[in-house]
């Protein structure tokens, strides 16, 4: 199958960037990234600069890859990453536009590669989780409601790819931050730091320059990890509760 690709080329953060058009011969069994590998080999062979794109596991679980194909983050396949999208989703002669995530908090480093350190800083703002050390406790000593453990697992599936931000008309990071707050907040192990975690992660999300959530739902529809809008409500609830529950640290640090 023959494809025409309009790919965003940008040398670095300072470059304005532009679309350039390429043609590539692919077959339907290739993954999307393998198709780009073929294009890059041709570009290298003819002495041109290959197209920079992020990838790592190519199994849809690491969250490294991701760009916008024809206006849809991770391309047209439902709820999967671009590395797990195969060329059978496209047809011969199709024209595809490849564009990087667009958000102030995700500056373009090169071509289709963006800097997602903002997500790392939101995670760091979440701080630590208190865990017991010493002898292992009995596996069933801590009771967790089945429904909550399922929801915690659903939210823990977030791979931090950034498709939620990319698809959101407001460039909000609410689904990502919501998933991170919810997956710990739902479990007993996450309770000791729950208040500060919600306050600090939401504050960091604002500092990074992400937009606000207006419950449009594009993030949920584009999430390769099937994170639900419910995660955002959980974040909102945790944050609002934390604003009222937060207590000043006692001067002197209390007895201890």
């Amino acid at each position: 199958m023959k494809l025409t690709l309009d790919i965003w080329r940008q040398k670095g953060a300072a470059d304005a960037g532009r679309f350039e058009t390429y043609t590539v011969e692919a077959n339907e069994h290739m993954s999307f990234l393998e198709m780009l590998d073929v294009l890059n080999q041709e570009l290298i062979g003819s002495g041109k600069e290959p197209v920079a794109f992020d990838s790592d596991c190519r199994e849809g679980i690491c969250g490294m890859c991701g760009f916008v194909v024809n206006g849809v983050p991770h391309g047209p396949a439902d709820n999967t990453t671009i590395c797990q999208t195969h060329m059978r989703h496209f047809h011969d002669g199709e024209r595809l536009r490849l564009e990087p995530w667009r958000a102030a908090a995700f500056p373009v480093l090169k071509d289709l590669v963006v800097d997602r350190s903002a997500f790392d800083r939101i995670i760091q703002a979440g701080g630590f989780v208190s865990v017991r050390t010493g002898a292992a406790v009995d596996g069933n000593a801590m009771l967790v409601e089945k429904n909550k453990s399922d929801r915690a697992m659903t939210n823990a599936a977030c791979i931090g790819c950034g498709a939620c931000v990319a698809s959101c008309p407001n460039a909000a990071a609410a689904l990502f931050t919501g998933a991170k707050i919810a997956h710990l907040g739902l479990l007993p192990q996450g309770q000791p730091e729950r208040t500060d975690r919600a306050l600090n992660m939401v504050a960091q999300m604002g500092k990074e320059g992400f937009g606000h959530c207006t419950t449009i739902g594009e993030c949920e529809a584009n999430c390769p990890a099937h994170i639900k809008l419910e995660a955002i409500a959980q974040m909102n609830g945790d944050f609002l509760r934390a604003v009222f529950a937060k207590r000043e640290e006692a001067a002197g640090g209390g007895a201890g």
Binding site: F19, V68, G71, R97, A104, A171, G209
Partner: peptide, 13 residues
């Protein structure tokens, strides 16, 4: 939060 708009953006849902 999005100073540079997409050249093409579809609403999925």
């Amino acid at each position: 939060a999005r100073p540079i708009e997409y050249h093409q953006k579809e609403s999925v849902n």
